[in-house]
Design a protein around this nucleic acid. Structure first.
Lengths: 236, 236
DNA sequence: AAAATACAATATGTATACAAAAAGAATTTC
DNA sequence: GAAATTCTTTTTGTATACATATTGTATTTT
């Protein structure tokens, strides 16, 4: 590890974030202050500040006298996720279509290129991170400080759930993954056309695609989830 | 300041939170590490941890090499607020009606009693805090980790905006404030009846009441806010 | 006198040392 | 031998000391 403390701190922050998103650090795993402290050549003080930042953003859980853990994912988590996601993401996309600046659209196009590149020859982690980046940009476009906190938390678990089916070995998923990429293209087009209603609908379609994948691969039998239910707040 | 460091830390946390919510610390004001450090008998390390927690929750802004500030409120903030609030709060109330446990309903009733007590002889700050507590409980009832981050941020600025008209000197507001209290009663009834649709509608009515107050007292003329627009995600 | 620079004072960021608590290992007790 | 207890080790929390950056003041320069 090199550079000034400030850049080492940023490196720690970025690394942990990526490791959480890609399940390299699985939900519930403990973080070792001393080990990370040596690895990133930082004393415990700035290290613990990074922990607190990440905890505030929902990546970690800090427990009194018991160290930091990667935020858990449970059955309830998944249920909450699919309850909140269509509404929040629909709203974010709608606002993105209304407010997107040209430079942000450029960024989105670049992120989509990177996503397709990752699909074509990248690892599962690279795919999940590229997809995450795409959606982060739509959040920046929406630019609403009250919506973004929930949106960012959703993106964390969206990435982690996605990791399950972005792994290259899951050949069955190839079609779904390519459909996701097509939806991204449609999202870009809708944003460029300032089509807020179409954008919101695309958001819902996109989450529903994820939901289908989860059902197939992750969902334990018997989990009480209202799959057929119209999502809250979008029952138009 | 007395007790063990842990309780002093909690006191600092609670005090700052209340001071932000009640505008005793106005938006944008600087926090003095050294002064607070002496006042609460804490060294700078735990103090700065509290700052980071509060920043993560949206109470403070931390700027590199430039200390902590109370989160700003701007025209854009108000606009974002009224765009996001009906949707988020509607969803929270809906889930509250679905999930509320009996003990939580008891807490809500107690909070409402405290709110009425504050209206009848309390300071503006006490009123705002009591109202805040009421809504916090509905958030606990909803119990969705993806919705709560945005909800909590909304509550912060809801309290701060409210402070403008909870001041006793604004006699014109007496009727609106009493209407707010009645709405709280209706909300409790709807939750007890597990009436999710009614609850969501009450949430929207409640925010609209706030919006009317803001228009009268705070809103600068000419601010481009879509007052007549149906809120995102609830255009049923 | 105004602007620019250099200096001093203050505030913030990081590292280390110490205190307290939790976790683990060894011993004792039954 | 299992359970409980004590003791040791490790980990977490806090305080302090030092390094760095920013801000305010005084001096210099034009």
């Amino acid at each position: 590890m090199q550079g000034d403390p400030k850049s080492r701190k940023a490196a720690l922050y970025d690394t942990l974030k990526a490791q959480v998103l890609t399940l390299e650090l699985p939900p519930g795993s403990d973080l070792d202050e001393t080990a990370l402290s040596e690895q990133f050549a930082l004393s415990r003080t700035p290290l613990r500040e990074v922990f607190r930042n990440l905890a505030g953003e929902g990546f970690l859980d800090l427990r009194e006298n018991r160290g930091a853990r990667v935020a858990e994912m449970s059955h309830k988590t998944l249920r909450d996720f699919f309850l909140a996601a269509p509404m929040i993401y629909g709203a974010v996309m709608r606002l993105a279509a209304l407010n997107a600046r040209p430079d942000q659209v450029d960024m989105l196009v670049k992120a989509q290129d990177a996503f397709r590149a990752a699909l074509d020859g990248g690892t599962g982690a690279q795919r999940a991170l590229a997809n995450n980046r795409f959606h982060e940009i739509t959040g920046e476009m929406a630019d609403n400080i009250y919506l973004l906190p929930s949106f960012h938390r959703l993106l964390i678990d969206h990435a982690r759930i996605s990791m399950t089916f972005y792994r290259p070995q899951h050949e069955v998923m190839a079609q779904d993954v390519s459909e996701a990429a097509s939806q991204h293209d449609a999202i870009i087009a809708a944003i460029q056309a300032r089509d807020e209603v179409g954008c919101a609908q695309l958001a819902i379609d996109h989450w529903n695609l994820s939901r289908g994948k989860i059902e197939m691969f992750v969902m334990p039998a018997g989990l009480d989830m209202p799959l057929g239910q119209v999502p809250i707040g979008l029952s138009t």
